[in-house]
Amino acid sequence: MVEERNPLIRFVNSMYSLIDGPVTFFREKIVEPNQEKYPYYHQKFRRVAGIDECYTDDYVCKFEAQHQFLRDRSVDCEILSILRQRYEHCNTEDLNNRGEEKCEAIYEVYKDAAGAWFAKYGDLGPMPDVLFAFTKQQHRMIWERRHGPVGSGMKEDEFKVEDPDAPRKKP
C-alpha cells in the first residue's frame, strides 16, 4: 500500500480505522462464526391449524391460528410492497417511455395481487383478527354462490318463471 504524505488523508484514514476496526473485529470474530451454530436468519415456522380447525374452547389453537394469520399477513404485505416497488422502479427507470407497454405486465401482476390482498385482508381494520377474516371469507363465499363473483354484478334468478296471466306492475 502506498503511504500517504498528505496529513489530512492520513488523519481521515486513521479515524476510519478507529471506527471501523472494532466493528470489523466484532463481525469477523463473533457474528460470522456463530451464524452457523445459531440460525437466526430466515426462521421457518411450522404451519399450524387454521381457525376453522379449532374447537370453540381451544384457546391455544386460536392463539396459534391468530399468530399464523398475522405472519401470513405480514408476508403478503411485503410481497405487495415488493411488487409495488418493482412497478414504480419500472416507471421511473426510463422517463421517456412512461406509461407504455414496458411496465404493463408488472402492473397487471401488482393489480391482481392487490385485489387478492384486499379480498383477504381488506376492511379488517388496523388490528385484524383471524376470526373476523374467516367470517369475511365465509360471507364472500356465500355471496359468490348466490350472486356470482364479486364485482361482476348480480346474476339473474335462473329458476324464476313469470306467470303470463299475472297483472304487470307499472314501472
Score class of each variant (00 low, 15 high):
2 V>I: 09
4 E>M: 15
7 P>E: 06
11 F>K: 02
12 V>A: 09
13 N>A: 12
14 S>F: 09
17 S>E: 10
20 D>V: 12
20 D>Y: 09
22 P>S: 04
31 V>L: 14
32 E>H: 08
35 Q>M: 15
42 H>P: 03
43 Q>D: 09
46 R>G: 14
46 R>F: 12
48 V>I: 03
52 D>H: 08
53 E>R: 05
53 E>T: 06
61 C>E: 01
61 C>T: 02
65 A>R: 05
65 A>Q: 05
79 I>H: 12
81 S>Q: 13
82 I>Q: 09
83 L>E: 04
86 R>V: 04
91 N>D: 10
93 E>N: 11
96 N>T: 10
103 C>G: 03
107 Y>C: 04
108 E>G: 02
110 Y>S: 03
113 A>N: 04
113 A>T: 03
117 W>F: 14
117 W>S: 03
117 W>T: 00
118 F>T: 08
121 Y>G: 03
122 G>E: 03
126 P>Y: 01
127 M>V: 10
131 L>K: 11
133 A>W: 05
137 Q>P: 00
137 Q>F: 06
137 Q>R: 13
139 H>R: 15
141 M>E: 14
143 W>A: 13
144 E>F: 06
148 G>K: 05
150 V>A: 01
150 V>I: 14
151 G>I: 00
156 E>N: 08
160 K>I: 07
161 V>S: 00
163 D>R: 11
165 D>I: 08
166 A>F: 13
166 A>Y: 07
168 R>F: 11
170 K>Q: 12
